[in-house]
Structure formats: C-alpha cells, structure tokens
Design a protein around this nucleic acid. Structure first.
Lengths: 157, 157
DNA sequence: TATTGTTATACTCTATAACTATA
DNA sequence: TATAGTTATAGAGTATAACAATA
C-alpha cells in the first residue's frame, strides 16, 4: 500500500505545497476575524501568557523594529497591551486584552476546524503518522516557546 | 513504534508549526538570493513556462492589482518579462528572463537542500508516508497548476 | 558597555476602487 | 457587456540605522 505509483511529488515540493495550503487557511481565517495573518499569529502566540518583546522577535523571526510596529497596530486596535516589567524598567511584556483573547480563541478554533476538515480526508493511519513525524520535526527546529498551558492568566484591557 | 507517548502536539497545531518552519526556510533562502519570498514564489511558479496574469492571480491567491505590482518590481529587477499574447491583445504572459531562470533554479535548489536536510532526520518509512499523505492532500486542494515539466522554453531577456 | 525597546526612513506587499483597452 | 490588465491610493509588514533609557 505504500507503493508509489501515482505521480507523487518529491517530498520537499510536497512540503512547500502543504505550507502554502496551511498559510492560505490561516490567511482566510484571519481575514474573517478582521486580522492580518501576522496579527493572528501574534495573538495565538500570546494565548499562553504575556511575552517580552525580545522573546517575541525570536519566536516570530522579526527585527525588533518590525515587532514594534506590529505591536503598535495591534495595540491601537485594542487587541494587546504593553505592560511594564516590574524587574527591568527597560522592558515590557505584551499581553492579550480581553478582546484580543476572545479573537485569538476564535481564530485558533477557525484554523483548527478547517485543517481538521482537510485532514479528515486522510485515512486515520496517515493522520497518526503525520502527527508523529511532524511533531518530531518541529520539536527539534521550532524556536517558538512550546510552553505548557499553565500561566494563561492576567489579561488586562 | 507508532505509539504516541511523548507530548505530541495536536495534528492541526503541528501542521501550523510545520508551515511556519517551511516558510522560514523559504524566506531565508530567498534572502540569500536577494529575493523577497513573494518574488521567489513567483519565479518558481514560472519555471515551467510563461503564465498569464489572470492565471497567476489564481495560483498565488492575489488580487490582480497586487500581482501587477509584484510583476512590476520583478520586471524592474530584470527577473521576468511581459510578453504580449498574440491571440488576445489585452493579455500578456509573464516569462522568466535568463537571469530570472538562473535565480529560480538556485532558489529552488536551496529550498530543496534545506528541507532535505531537515527531513533527513526522520526515519525513511516516515518520509515515505509523509510524501504519500501530503501529496494526496495538496493534489486535492492546491489551485496551483501542477503542470508536467514540459514546455519550459522560450526565455526572453 | 551591553541590552531593551523606539523612531526615522525606505521599500515591499496587499486590497479596494476606478480606469483603459480589447473581446 | 464582459474580460485582461493598469493606475491611484491607503494601509500593513519588514529591514537598516540611529537613538534613548536602563542594566
């Protein structure tokens, strides 16, 4: 059953296609909630709790000045808030507002639903192996802080 | 061996992470060749031969005016050229220049190398199944014209 | 001195709306 | 009238460089 008879793409090309597909889903869902994909990504990253600017630049692979602008616009829309760090007066932590947290949940659910619908077309064994294989990959190479769902507290705004 | 014991992410989250990982590789390679990711994507799409603007908007999921700008900038850099369509004087076909074709090959190779390096960490059985599973997915849902490598000819510039 | 973050500037990307030219 | 593409405009995203404030 694992014989390759159909015109199967090379794995690398397939990965690029898959990434574009996911990206498109992400963009569509973002748009439904009046977010840019970058804003949606920021909100989802903040769902586990407030994060400092420097850590965010590493997670999002952005220059600090780019992040300043992104946070500025999200703040202007009332989605996030800058909170001064009590221990380092240079630093600030970015936190979701109540409104931002609400939108973040909706966007995340939207993406999850659409992707699950896509994955539903695969046989279950494929889904399981995809999960295992991809998890191994991203666990190694993601710079995103894979924090445990714990301190998702203190939402200002 | 397919037992899920480690803290494995839900498949949908894993997919989003994977997409970001691929996207980052794409961005890094693009940068090495002095391209924006969008320009690199355009060049790669044109590798199989000239394409009209309308078809490109569908492949790239862009509004036509956005594509006009993208092609403008790529043309200004000497990467692509607009060729008048002989049968429809409103239309034009976008083709790689010699320079654009060269850069496209280099960028594609760069992405392929990096992704192969990442995939190399996976056991071969996982790679095979990934290929099969993902190919099935993207074949259904990609709007990209999966053209056969045939008419990659007539490169102006 | 090093680090955290912002400001100034320039360019790219993108969409909406109005437009031109051809079919 | 419909289609192919461009122009005008505005906002968002991004990087580089220079800067301010704090450590």
């Amino acid at each position: 059953m694992v014989t390759t008879k159909e015109p199967v793409l090379p794995l690398t090309d397939a990965l690029v296609r898959l990434a574009h597909l996911v990206q498109q889903v992400f963009a569509e869902v973002s748009r439904e909630h009046d977010l840019t994909p970058q804003q949606a990504q920021l909100l989802c990253l903040l769902m586990r709790g407030p994060v400092g600017m420097t850590e965010l630049t590493r997670s999002l692979h952005l220059e600090k000045s780019s992040l300043t602008g992104l946070v500025d616009r999200a703040e202007k829309r009332g989605l996030v808030a800058r909170c001064r760090d009590s221990r380092d007066r240079r630093a600030c932590r970015i936190a979701l507002t109540c409104d931002g947290a609400r939108v973040a949940v909706l966007a995340h659910e939207g993406v999850t639903e659409r992707l699950e619908a896509l994955m539903g077309e695969l046989p279950e064994e494929h889904r399981d192996l995809l999960t295992t294989a991809i998890s191994g990959l991203v666990a190694e190479h993601t710079t995103h802080p894979i924090r445990l769902p714990s301190d998702a507290t203190d939402l200002p705004g």
